[in-house]
């Protein structure tokens, strides 16, 4: 009696199958997943606080993420780099035994060596450790900023596409206005006046990133609103909010995901750019853009401060763009 077997998620299954055919995008997705894991596990990968500590006959599990009051009392957390285990004591350190904030001015601006694999910055902090912790910042700025942009874009885009007429005109003018203003300069200007913090950056990037999403959602709504299932819902007396968000939106989300993926790349690049120019996250927070900035202004050009953070930015941004492209192709119109 039925044409296909029962499968509620067939749409996403098809998208996933198509996506799998793009080897490069699949590889990029793996890169992003690895990056996400690195960000998530940063305290276990790059830290001078040990993962396990046996001291004075007591075993401390994960002191790198748990603050033990007796260790705190000894002021050990701030001095783990100098702590030497006495008889019977031992510790397991993360593979990169440098904290992202640990300064050592005597070791400043070292080029890559045995101890500091990717060198040190101007305060003697380990570059690799700061880059690993910096991935947390980049990714969280990316996701939160894009989250804000997507929500604003969905609300404005669906209102414009569904109601049309003057609502549409108003939203379109607003979008055009946003597109005319060079976002980067707008953000720099705003950042110059606001207290610098990671939240300010997320919000400002998010507030300027919605026009693309809004335009896409508007276009999808314009298309869907003519569909007979929408007319049927109207005839059945369902209210507009329900029709917009319960009926049309799920059918319009495909392009939003694609645009959000590209948006992530843009937001990460934006954060690095801002930090590079000194409008970013305030020090001492580790950021890829901030490492890049340090490479300048020294007589001896600190190439490791350009190359490694630059590569990290490049790889991340490229990976998100590749996933976006793969997703876009996988969701090709013939599925809708």
């Amino acid at each position: 009696m039925f044409r296909k077997s029962y499968n509620p998620h067939s749409y996403w299954n098809t998208v996933w199958r198509e996506f799998n055919k793009h080897r490069l995008s699949l590889f990029a997705l793996i890169v992003i997943i690895v990056l996400g894991l690195i960000a998530l596990l940063a305290p276990f990968i790059a830290n001078d606080i040990p993962i396990l500590l046996y001291k004075g006959g007591q075993l401390y599990i994960f002191p790198n993420v748990i603050t033990y009051s007796d260790l705190q009392a000894e002021n050990l957390y701030a001095n783990f780099d100098r702590w030497q285990p006495s008889d019977g004591d031992w510790m397991v350190k993360p593979p990169i035994p440098h904290g992202p904030f640990r300064q050592n001015l005597e070791h400043s601006l070292q080029s890559p060596n045995r101890i500091h694999w990717l060198g040190t910055d101007d305060r003697g902090r380990d570059v690799l450790s700061r880059m690993i912790w910096g991935s947390r910042l980049s990714l969280s700025v990316g996701f939160v900023a894009v989250g804000i942009a997507v929500i604003i874009g969905i609300v404005l885009g669906s209102l414009a596409g569904y109601f049309g007429k003057w609502v549409d005109t108003l939203v379109l003018r607003f979008i055009e206005l946003m597109l005319v203003i060079p976002t980067f300069f707008l953000i720099i200007t705003v950042m110059a006046f606001l207290p610098p913090s990671i939240w300010t950056i997320m919000i400002v990037i998010g507030l300027t990133g919605w026009p693309g999403v809004a335009r896409l959602v508007r276009g999808e709504f314009l298309k869907q609103r003519q569909m007979e299932y929408v007319l049927a819902s109207q005839a059945l007396g369902l209210n507009n909010t329900r029709i917009m968000f319960r009926h049309i939106l799920p059918n319009a989300m495909g392009p939003v995901f694609v645009s959000a993926t590209f948006g992530l790349a843009g937001a990460i690049l934006m954060e690095s750019g801002l930090s590079f120019l000194g409008f970013g996250v305030p020090p001492p927070a580790p950021s890829w853009g901030e490492l890049l900035k340090q490479s300048q202004g020294y007589v001896d050009f600190a190439w490791w401060l350009v190359l490694f953070p630059g590569l990290a930015i490049f790889i991340t941004v490229t990976a998100f763009n590749l996933v976006g492209e793969g997703l876009r192709d996988a969701m090709d119109p013939r599925l809708r």
Binding site: Y11, M227, E228, Y229, L231, A232, A235, L236, P250
Partner: peptide, 15 residues
């Protein structure tokens, strides 16, 4: 008053 549509493919929400 209710309506039945011509196109049985677009008249039902696919999701």
């Amino acid at each position: 008053i209710q309506i039945i549509f011509q196109d049985p493919y677009s008249s039902l929400n696919p999701r």
